[in-house]
Amino acid sequence: MRARQNRKFPRPARPSSMSTARVCVLLVVFSVTLAEDVNVKSKPVRLFTEEELERFDGTQEGQPIYMAVKGVVFDVTRGKEFYGKGAPYNALVGKDSTRAVAKMSLDPSDLTSDTADLTDEQLKSLDQIFESTYKAKYPIVGYTAARILNQDGSPNKDFKPENQPHFQIKDEF
């Protein structure tokens, strides 16, 4: 009986030192990759002026592509086919396009952060797209100065870093 079992289920061969080395290399590569992912996610966010944000409009090859919605700056580079140079939504990048997102518009007059006179339906749509598209798909790299500062340059007292997406601590930038 025992002889049959051994023939059916042969003893596994011991792994060679080459196999062990491959497993070690894979573990090291996996660890480094995981560490890089963690570093990317824990990068501090930064404050963007309008002029700084304009530099990330998808026109320069190799540069990231940034877009702001509701004053939150997203890295939309991974969606280059939508936001890159000559792409259908390229008009939205390099600026805060909150109004355009709310109205689902590419009209140049809507490419602004101004939400005055938007309907309740447009504001609801803006919140839904902000959460399900931008926050869910793209990393946050910063905030626009307009979200944090008043028009006169004084700090916006209503801005609470701890209530912002991806802020870990108050003095992060």
Rank of each mutant, 00 (worst) to 15 (best):
A136I: 05
D110G: 06
K43D: 04
L106P: 08
R2N: 14
S97C: 01
V40Y: 10
F82T: 06
V93I: 04
E51M: 07
P44E: 01
P88R: 03
N156G: 10
S97Q: 07
P139G: 03
Y143W: 05
K8M: 12
N163E: 02
F30G: 15
A68C: 06
K157W: 03
F167C: 14
G86D: 11
S19M: 10
F130G: 08
S97D: 09
V45A: 00
P139K: 00
E162M: 12
S125M: 13
I148T: 11
G153E: 14
I148K: 13
E131C: 09
N39C: 09
I169D: 12
S31N: 15
R2H: 10
Q122A: 12
R11T: 13
V76M: 06
G86K: 04
Q164Y: 03
R4M: 13
F9K: 12
D117I: 01
P10H: 08
E172P: 04
H166G: 07
A100I: 09
T59A: 14
R22A: 10
T98P: 11
T59L: 14
L111P: 00
E162H: 07
Q60G: 13
P161I: 00
S97A: 14
N6S: 09
Y66D: 07
S113N: 11
E81G: 13
V32P: 13
F173E: 05
E131H: 07
F173S: 03
R11I: 09
F9Y: 11
P15L: 00
R78K: 14
P139E: 00
F159I: 07
D120W: 03
Q151V: 14
M104Q: 14
A21K: 08
S125G: 15
T98F: 02
S154R: 07
S17A: 12
T20W: 13
F167N: 14
P165C: 05
A35D: 14
I65P: 03
N163Q: 08
K124A: 15
K95A: 02
P139T: 04
D171F: 01
F130I: 07
G94H: 00
Y89W: 06
V25F: 06
R11K: 12
M18T: 14
V25P: 03
K103E: 11
P88V: 08
I169R: 13
V28A: 12
V69I: 12
S105W: 08
M67G: 04
E36H: 15
S31D: 15
S154N: 11
S31P: 13
L92F: 05
Y89M: 07
L47C: 02
I148N: 11
V101Q: 12
K95R: 15
D110I: 00
F56C: 08
V141L: 02
A136M: 03
R46D: 00
Y83I: 08
E172A: 02
R22G: 11
K137I: 01
F74V: 06
L118W: 03
F74Y: 13
K85T: 10
L149T: 04
K80D: 15
D75L: 01
V76H: 01
R46A: 00
R2G: 14
K157A: 14
V38P: 05
K137N: 04
K70S: 14
T133S: 11
G58T: 08
E51A: 12
S154A: 08
Y89I: 03
T144N: 08
V40L: 15
D171R: 03
F56Y: 08
E162K: 10
G142L: 02
T115Y: 05
N163W: 02
T33A: 15
L53G: 00
V28N: 13
